[in-house]
Design a protein around this nucleic acid. Structure first.
Length: 298
DNA sequence: GTTGAGCGTT
């Protein structure tokens, strides 16, 4: 065995990544595809001919050219048909990859004693792993607990463990489940704009812009006034927006829910949208069987 | 000041 690692890149000009070789000097294709999902082989530029050469691949094992990998940078091959597709998948999952492969989500905690506080929840769940968010839902007026809350863990393994068992919290058995809010995932609208639900009043457009910048270029942030607990964020790239849909993100310590922004209605629709009795009574007033205004999109 | 299956001020 000559080297421990070979240098692999997606492109000759990209920064290479070191991929481990096996004891016999070969490199497993699986080692490559672990870092470059979808990879089906390697190639390199032959220093003498300046032509690209393929690396021998036998049953998932990549063999060094001339018995040594040398100091060359090897370039990843993707299946021809899938190349475009792979790029799209990469872009769409870039957000998730940045954060790690297993995304955690908020868990609903059912059956909490009325007296249980967020500190109690945090203390209890911290025995399982790092807790990054807790909430106890309360009546806005009285401040009384509604007997349920939410918890979010840093690691997916923790989440899995917590869901799998019942929890004795302050003398009551409680259940942790994936909330219904994402049981029926909204879809399929390739918008560059996302709906940010469960915003709090202290979130400014700057806060949101600063936060969402990490995922891609933000071209607009809109917060309805007066406060309505949601906002819209528009990205330059629709794939960034799509990749975020369905996720719960934590901004200023609170969990916001990302979904597709529904197509914007024009002013006349907005005006009549909350009409008492609904659009049916409106239609009746207009002597028609249907909502009197043509629908419009985006 | 109560309660005990559920689902987070779109």
């Amino acid at each position: 065995m000559s080297e421990l690692y070979i240098r692999v890149a997606e492109d000759e000009n990209e920064e290479p990544m070191e991929i481990p070789s096996e004891d016999d000097g070969t490199v497993l294709l699986s080692s490559v595809s672990a870092q470059f999902p979808g990879a089906c082989g390697l190639r390199y530029r032959n220093p003498e001919s300046q032509c690209m050469r393929g690396v021998r691949l036998v049953e998932g094992v990549l063999h060094a050219p001339e018995s040594s990998w040398g100091n060359l940078v090897y370039v990843v091959n993707y299946p021809k048909d899938n190349k475009r597709k792979m790029e799209e998948i990469d872009a769409a999952s870039a957000v998730k990859i940045k954060r790690g492969f297993q995304k955690t989500s908020d868990l609903i905690v059912l059956g909490l004693p009325w007296k249980t506080t967020e500190q109690d929840l945090k203390d209890y769940f911290s025995t399982f792993g790092e807790v990054i968010m807790v909430q106890v839902k309360r009546d806005a007026k009285t401040g009384n607990s509604k007997g349920f809350g939410f918890v979010r863990f840093a690691d997916y393994e923790t989440q899995t463990k917590v869901i799998a068992q019942r929890h004795m919290i302050d003398g009551r058995w409680c259940d942790c489940k994936l909330p219904n809010s994402k049981a029926s995932p909204d879809e399929p609208m390739r918008s560059r704009k996302i709906f940010v639900g469960r915003c709090t009043e202290d979130m400014t457009t700057d806060d949101l812009r600063q936060y969402f910048m990490q995922y891609g270029e933000v071209t607009d942030v809109f917060i309805p006034k007066p406060f309505r607990a949601f906002a819209f964020v528009t990205f330059a790239d629709d794939q960034v927006a799509q990749a975020l849909c369905g996720e719960d993100l934590i901004i200023k310590g609170v969990s916001v829910h990302i979904s597709n922004a529904e197509p914007k209605h024009n002013n006349i629709h907005q005006l009549f949208h909350n009409f008492p009795g609904g659009v049916a009574s409106l239609a009746a007033m207009f002597g028609r069987s249907q909502y009197p205004f043509p629908s419009s999109h985006v």
